[in-house]
Amino acid sequence: MAAQEGRTVAVVRHPDRDQAAALEGDIRRWLEDHGHHATAPLEAADLVVSIGGDGTMLRAVDQASRQGTPVLGINVGQLGYLAEVDPSDWEAALERWHRGEARVVERMALAVRVERHGSAPAPPDDAPEPLPDGSYLALNEVVVEKTPTGRMVRLGVVLDGEDFNTYAADGMIVATPTGSTAYALSARGPIVDPEHRAIVLTPVAPHMLFDRALVLTPGTEVRLEIRGDRPATVALDGRSIGELEVGDALIATAAARPARLLTFGGHTFHSILKAKFGLEDR
């Protein structure tokens, strides 16, 4: 394969980890020494390098997916599911990318929009940035759940325009296969290989007999309506976008453009599962 030449690379790092800050300096120098241009995270780039854990990776993917830019994750911290390159291997990974040997895998993302009956409150300071049409992207999941000081909420689930059920629960998770090992896993949702395309709907602590997760086709439109008399909160990939009032709704569908992750065939999904859960051959 032909070597990469004169590429623009955005570097994103965890803001509070000294190791991430040191790696950022080393990576920027390496890129400049190899004829590439290291740039700020929000500028147009040919590659985004994320230095941190899965949270840092999710933020990098949120920005990179808007231009279809692939993301290389360097894991600083505990073993995660997204950032696959160990800190000691970053130079070898970039050398392989420089030589054109990296592979890009595509992961399904969610497109999420909110319908409000009243005016929208000001979003939290750390809220993700919406797309120009007002929708949001999520690689892992969107979560609608009770407010921090509230009791359970009533959530109406409408699938492809057909009323399915009203759940009395602590919340509802709409996840991608990539997100099946995030919050949905702790709510006893299924583990789905991240290279599949599907929408996983998992109730959180439902107060009802039907408490099973649903694995839906990727073309399904999932609408969650706030029913009853209590508001709910909404978070995308762990970042709050505020509250929904009774009568408001959230709509989630498969995003038109997938997230693109750089991989070198290192940590496989199965090997990460084994390590995370301490699984051993008998």
Rank of each mutant, 00 (worst) to 15 (best):
V153F: 01
H207W: 05
I191M: 15
P148R: 09
H267Q: 14
A252H: 04
Y183W: 15
E106K: 07
A275K: 15
G189A: 06
V9E: 11
V158G: 03
E115M: 08
A20G: 14
H267D: 13
E24A: 14
A182H: 01
P194K: 07
I226P: 02
G265C: 08
D16H: 14
G80Q: 01
M108R: 00
D211V: 03
R28P: 00
M57Y: 10
A259F: 07
T233I: 10
L262M: 14
T69R: 11
P206S: 01
G161D: 04
V12E: 12
R66G: 03
R188E: 08
L23V: 13
R227K: 09
A235Q: 13
F269S: 10
G228M: 09
D54A: 06
E141N: 14
R59S: 15
L250D: 05
R282W: 11
R66T: 10
I241K: 05
A252Y: 06
A235I: 00
A275T: 15
A102Y: 02
E32F: 07
P128V: 10
P177H: 08
R197P: 10
A275H: 13
L185F: 15
E141F: 10
P206W: 03
S88Q: 13
I74A: 02
P203H: 10
S119I: 06
I272S: 00
R17S: 04
G171L: 12
R188L: 06
G118R: 05
R28G: 08
V200E: 06
L110K: 14
E129Y: 02
V49C: 01
F269E: 12
L79P: 14
V204W: 04
L131R: 14
L262W: 03
H117R: 12
R197Q: 14
P123E: 05
G228P: 04
T233V: 13
G156F: 00
D89T: 07
G247I: 06
L23R: 12
R99C: 06
S50C: 14
A3E: 13
P123M: 02
Q78S: 15
L79W: 03
T149H: 11
E32L: 10
E43G: 12
E141R: 08
G25C: 01
G52Y: 03
N140A: 04
S88A: 15
G265P: 06
D86E: 15
G52D: 09
E221I: 07
M108N: 01
V71P: 00
P124Y: 11
A168G: 08
Y81N: 02
P190D: 07
G77Q: 09
E91N: 09
D133G: 09
I191E: 06
G171I: 10
V61Q: 04
L94E: 05
G242V: 09
R151H: 15
I51G: 05
A60F: 04
A20M: 12
